[in-house]
């Protein structure tokens, strides 16, 4: 097996401080993805499509070619890129507003087409960048700046489970939900990202890894509290695990 970093900065991550808040999930997720890119030895043929959201500047951290999309449109841009250069490894990195609200049509259809790209979907149950408004993934009862007495289904509907929805589509080959709330979960998350990229490289179809991620700032919690909130509040509604693996693995 190829050499893999177990500690230290992955090659694919540039040696610069990030703009993320302390305890934010984005930083850990970046690192995991970068480690997988290093591990697979694909940095020079990887392309990332950045979202609009807290991760909009991720191309400042990943040492790979990049696009910055409009809000929600990353899967369409990734599609255009991949169709021109099928040998590239193309992934989108999207928040829940990006992937599950404004960009739902693109999210569903990139999977329906079985587009050979990967999506890293960061579900932090709020709109981080714009200051903590309700997201489509906000839990019932959860307080945000636009659901100040807690999300009520009568007026604000129900939180959306994107991974379950996408997994129903034949074009989606690999779908998993992971979290970075414990070392064990981090290890599993890394494995899922790796499988997702391998699914793409083998040309088996679309792959999606949903991360349950912390936003301590807009949850008004300490980093430790927010990790606990993921496990106690989010996981029961968004169960972890692989929802779909490529047929050849059965």
């Amino acid at each position: 097996m190829e050499m893999e970093m177990v500690s230290g900065r992955p090659k694919t991550l540039l040696p610069v401080p990030t703009h993320y808040c302390p305890g934010c999930g984005h930083g850990v997720i970046h690192r995991l993805v970068a480690e997988v890119i290093d591990g697979l030895g694909i940095r020079e043929k990887t392309v990332v499509v950045a979202p609009v959201g807290c991760a909009v500047l991720l191309y400042n951290y990943f040492d790979v070619d990049a696009y910055e999309a409009a809000h929600g449109r990353a899967p369409a841009i990734a599609t255009g890129c991949k169709r021109v250069n099928p040998e590239l490894v193309v992934f989108t990195y999207q928040g829940d507003g990006d992937f599950a609200a404004i960009g739902t049509a693109e999210a569903v259809h990139v999977a329906a087409r079985g587009e050979k790209i990967t999506t890293i979907f960061v579900n932090n149950a709020v709109y981080g960048m714009t200051g903590g408004q309700m997201a489509p993934t906000t839990l019932l009862g959860q307080k945000t700046t636009t659901t100040t007495s807690g999300r009520a289904s009568e007026t604000a509907g129900f939180p959306i489970r994107m991974s379950e929805m996408i997994a129903t589509l034949p074009g989606a080959a690999y779908v998993a939900r992971v979290s970075v709330s414990s070392p064990k979960n981090v290890a599993q998350a890394k494995m899922a990202v790796r499988k997702a990229f391998e699914t793409q490289i083998k040309g088996l179809g679309y792959s999606l890894v949903e991360f349950l991620s912390q936003c301590p700032t807009n949850w008004h919690m300490t980093p430790v509290e927010s990790v606990r909130w993921v496990e106690e509040q989010m996981v029961p509604y968004y169960p972890l695990g692989e929802l779909k693996v490529p047929k050849e693995e059965y």
Partner: peptide
């Protein structure tokens, strides 16, 4: 070449964005 019927004109134009960025005439 590649022909793709998109899910909307919104998607079409961003596919154009992606393909143009990848260097092809689109």
């Amino acid at each position: 070449g590649c022909y793709l019927q998109a899910e909307s004109e919104v998607a079409s134009i961003y596919m154009v964005f992606g393909a143009a960025g990848a260097g092809t005439r689109v």
